[in-house]
Measured scan of single mutants.
Amino acid sequence: CHSECLGNCSQPDDPTKCVACRNFYLDGRCVETCPPPYYHFQDWRCVNFSFCQDLHHKCKNSRRQGCHQYVIHNNKCIPECPSGYTMNSSNLLCTPCLGPCPKVCHLLEGEKTIDSVTSAQELRGCTVINGSLIINIRGGNNLAAELEANLGLIEEISGYLKIRRSYALVSLSFFRKLRLIRGETLEIGNYSFYALDNQNLRQLWDWSKHNLTITQGKLFFHYNPKLCLSEIHKMEEVSGTKGRQERNDIALKTNGDQASCENELLKFSYIRTSFDKILLRWEPYWPPDFRDLLGFMLFYKEAPYQNVTEFDGQDACGSNSWTVVDIDPPLRSNDPKSQNHPGWLMRGLKPWTQYAIFVKTLVTFSDERRTYGAKSDIIYVQTDATNPSVPLDPISVSNSSSQIILKWKPPSDPNGNITHYLVFWERQAEDSELFELDYCLKGLKLPSRTWSPPFESEDSQKHNQSEYEDSAGECCSCPKTDSQILKELEESSFRKTFEDYLHNVVFVPRKT
């Protein structure tokens, strides 16, 4: 048989008469490798580009789960590009990614509803959504962080984005990388972005840091009482949809009607710091009717980097990364020049730590249904340095008659930039024990000054392991946590139920 035959053949030295091919099969003959313009397919066939392209389009058009959109890589027609490569849609070739590779997620039936953290986790790592997304989240724990972890990498949506009755959302900033909504599939009414009845939605994105392009379709905003109209108009300008909307697409009466839409800028007039305090004062603000001013709200939190936005980490279910302080308005003076500047002394802060701070007014709604208010920009203030805590785990070892090696770990709280350490030492008198000992005694162990690591005695271990207080009263049991108490109650309830079950099964009433 021919060298490319495997198993047997019907005619000697003829690659077209093989029972099976050793390498690849091409047009009725066995070959060692697939010549151009053919590609290896499933490690035994040679196919042309049209064959591989037909497989790709067949799966793409069917949208069946589990099928493969075949691509070409290293002269092979394979189910998908290997790690580190992405497909070129024009020629199906796998090309190296520039940075992290995109991950295209194809949605069944063309859309997916995100109504819980669990459903959001199914899209973790996706960068391109081939379909439409509907966000409908009523509640949950730590929602802002969970949504950002699972949806934060999405850069492109081919269909539309719909935010509907998501009472738990305060902001859409968890879509931190969303840059493009194509609108290839539109919501009824030709809408590519749809926001309806979101009672706590206050911000779409921080438009000073976020760009969003909507290729096709219109915007729809109705019944978002805490979303200011200025935020919607800003989205029109940034996304390129200005002029597409009709009169009733953006409701003037049901958007922002319960919001404090600040239209003035508060400026800080005085800032002073110490290692654990920050004193702030800002310019006074009074609405047209000074009785509408209820006070100020001061927001602050630790910020290692200057990239904080107002609604980071917030949701309507209680999660809030900001510390909020309510401040009463100052006494009002008739003389504008003698107006008191409101302020606040922030206490209990960490030394040498940068804080993000902003302040906003708290006002009631005027009778004319106009909203007044003022808010400052987010500023960054760093507390002063102070003395560091003591170095940890000092170790001293003498390696000769004239040297001592000293080692330690950095302090747990540096409280500033540590530039150097101060080492103090003092000579001590020799131990009298060394002169009084009889060095001729056998088995004498000389006193040693070398360091030995501390260890816990058996008594201390027994005390720590004991669940009861000892007789001397030195140790006591740790208080039980809520989960331990709940577990004990469940076990007790189970024992009672099981005992009742045994009584009912074992003891049967005697027939009379």
Rank of each mutant, 00 (worst) to 15 (best):
C105K: 00
L107A: 12
G110L: 10
L123V: 08
R124I: 05
C126S: 01
V128Q: 02
R138L: 14
A144E: 08
E146A: 11
E148P: 09
I154H: 03
E156Q: 14
L161C: 06
K162H: 09
I163T: 04
S166P: 03
S166L: 05
S173N: 11
S173T: 09
S173A: 13
F174M: 07
F175V: 08
L178S: 01
R179G: 11
I181A: 01
T185S: 11
T185H: 14
I188A: 15
I188T: 13
I188V: 10
Y191W: 07
F193L: 12
Y194H: 14
A195V: 09
L196G: 05
N198T: 05
N198R: 02
N198L: 06
N200D: 04
L204A: 15
D206P: 10
W207F: 14
W207K: 10
S208L: 14
S208T: 11
N211G: 04
N211R: 07
T215Y: 10
T215S: 13
Q216H: 09
G217V: 02
F220Y: 03
F221N: 04
K226G: 02
L229Q: 08
E231V: 03
E236W: 15
V238W: 06
G240P: 03
Q245A: 11
E246F: 08
R247M: 06
R247I: 10
N248R: 06
D249A: 11
L252A: 12
L252W: 12
Q258T: 05
L266D: 01
S274Q: 14
F275R: 15
R281K: 13
E283G: 09
Y285K: 02
D292R: 02
L293Y: 01
L298Y: 02
Y300S: 13
Y300F: 06
K301E: 04
E302G: 15
E302Y: 11
T309M: 03
F311I: 06
F311K: 13
D312G: 15
G313L: 07
G313C: 08
C317P: 08
L331P: 03
S333N: 08
D335R: 12
K337S: 14
K337G: 12
P342E: 04
P342K: 04
G343M: 07
M346I: 08
M346F: 07
M346H: 05
K350N: 08
T353Q: 08
T353R: 07
L362G: 01
R369C: 03
R370S: 05
Y372S: 05
D377F: 05
I379C: 12
T386L: 10
N387M: 15
V390T: 13
P391T: 02
L392M: 14
D393Q: 13
D393L: 08
D393M: 15
P394H: 03
S400Q: 15
S401V: 15
I405T: 03
K407T: 03
K409V: 11
K409N: 07
P410L: 10
P411V: 08
